Amino acid sequence: MEVRTIKVFTTVDNINLHTQVVDMSMTYGQQFGPTYLDGADVTKIKPHNSHEGKTFYVLPNDDTLRVEAFEYYHTTDPSFLGRYMSALNHTKKWKYPQVNGLTSIKWADNNCYLATALLTLQQIELKFNPPALQDAYYRARAGEAANFCALILAYCNKTVGELGDVRETMSYLFQHANLDSCKRVLNVVCKTCGQQQTTLKGVEAVMYMGTLSYEQFKKGVQIPCTCGKQATKYLVQQESPFVMMSAPPAQYELKHGTFTCASEYTGNYQCGHYKHITSKETLYCIDGALLTKSSEYKGPITDVFYKENSYTTTIK
């Protein structure tokens, strides 16, 4: 009895394709271990004539594949690729409408935090270190965002349907971005203890939790000093293409032309909904596939993004 075979390709990165001759009487799992086709788990399936010449994702289970996976995804987590594939199996079914010149995501599976993050990423200057993220990001900007969303979920250790947080998501993504040249110098002034300067680099240099107003941050924000008295913390120097200011959701007025974009969060910790506000020729609110415009805006804002380049204080 002759062994019926077909020729397929296996890959971990969709760049390096490895030619395989597979036995049609055995499952993919018996031949390769966990195997995925377009995100779908085909591990328990036997090869079919229609699979001839198709590319299958496999887990990096030998040295060659491990090197290829690390170079593309910059992670050695053995569960990463499987999590990416199972997320992709959902995100490829989502709709990605162009809204006001940006790629958004039609609401499904509690994905409003991903839509808000995706919209924000198209408006701030950011370059990702893992080629996987950078490639998928370019495709997302062009309207094909399924891979990018699935990668975000995998890097953030999230599953489809789980509630997510924009600030946490951005923080994970910033860790995989090139923020080497970003720098922030802060000064804390206390009447009792004097003053202390701190220099922050990388992710810490672009994120701040405690106030939404970048102007206020430049002037000074009140913080408790270690001595128990009130101290003032203010920005001395900022070198970065953008800054992200966050605070627990509270009524906040966004003035046209003073910011790049913002995240609105309605609801409580267990259950809520994100919308995205962007400042173009007027203010726009993007909620999944829905767009509304207004000249002014007041609502429960939790993150505001500002364009920056270089700032030095005039406070002496």
Rank of each mutant, 00 (worst) to 15 (best):
E2Q: 11
T5R: 13
V8M: 12
D13S: 07
N16F: 08
L17K: 12
L17Q: 10
T19W: 08
V21T: 13
V22F: 05
S25D: 14
S25P: 08
M26K: 15
L37E: 10
L37I: 12
D38R: 09
A40C: 13
V42W: 14
T43W: 04
K44A: 11
K46D: 14
G53Q: 11
K54D: 13
F56R: 05
F56A: 05
P60K: 00
N61C: 15
N61P: 09
L65P: 04
V67C: 15
E68I: 10
A69T: 10
Y72A: 13
H74M: 10
H74Q: 11
T76W: 08
D77P: 07
L81P: 06
R83Y: 03
S86C: 13
T91R: 05
K95G: 05
V99L: 13
V99D: 03
V99Q: 00
K106Y: 06
D109A: 06
D109I: 03
C112G: 07
L118W: 06
K127N: 13
P130F: 01
P130E: 06
D135M: 10
R139T: 10
R141F: 08
R141Q: 11
L163F: 15
L163S: 06
R167E: 00
E168N: 13
E168I: 08
S171K: 15
Q175A: 13
Q175M: 06
V189N: 09
V189I: 11
K191L: 11
Q196S: 13
V206D: 00
Y208C: 06
M209S: 14
K218N: 02
K218D: 00
G220R: 02
I223K: 04
T226S: 15
C227Y: 05
A231P: 04
A231E: 00
Y234W: 07
L235G: 01
L235R: 02
P241F: 00
V243L: 05
V243M: 00
V243R: 03
P248L: 15
Y252Q: 04
K255G: 09
G257L: 04
F259A: 02
F259R: 03
E264Q: 11
E264R: 08
G267Y: 12
Y269S: 15
H276E: 00
I277G: 00
L283R: 01
C285F: 10
D287K: 00
G288A: 02
K293G: 10
E296G: 08
T302H: 05
